[in-house]
Amino acid sequence: MPKVISTGTSTVSKLSRRSFMSGSVLAAATMPIITRSAKAEEPPSDGQDNARALAAVSMRVNRQSYNFALDNRTSLLDALRDHAGLTGTKKGCDHGQCGACTVLVDGRRVLSCLSFAVMNEGRDVTTIEGLAAADGSLHPMQQAFIDNDAFQCGYCTPGQIMSAIGCVNEGHAGSEDDIREYMSGNLCRCAAYPNIVAAIVQARDETRRS
């Protein structure tokens, strides 16, 4: 059982995805959380620090605490996929141009490929894996995507769903035109757009009713 979720990229490559994933969750549950005050007491910059040292980064992902040891260059997307084993979040372009990597950080939709993981210290992250309830019942947005056949290959879908939840929460899903405008940051190579809009309308109305 790895004590540290990962060091560089080595831990991930040695374990199968399944054992790695269960291992990381257990490790997270038993590891102490690095407190933010400890970080704040870091000595002021003296020019001696090592750019290659691994940074201790803690965040909550899908209601679990994670303690990562990461190269500063690691994007939030790579931390989630390669270090936490949460591969539901997809890498499309890795440059902010497609929306496949969309996650919620402190409830707001962002592009995980354009954020360094170290910048997310102490944040609360939700990925597609964190949407379903404990009993396995799907989030209304997930169910709406299924009901409306809102995908073909499915590669853009986790990003679409996370973005759609953000879009509804922001109050930008009032009309179909609004949905098209405010969802424009999520490209779908299969062009499932009309069905995606229909799914968002359905989930929006259901969430409003409840």
Binding site: V110, L114, N186
Partner: peptide, 9 residues
Amino acid sequence: AASGQIRNM
């Protein structure tokens, strides 16, 4: 400008 996600960031 940009997209909903980028404008949040």
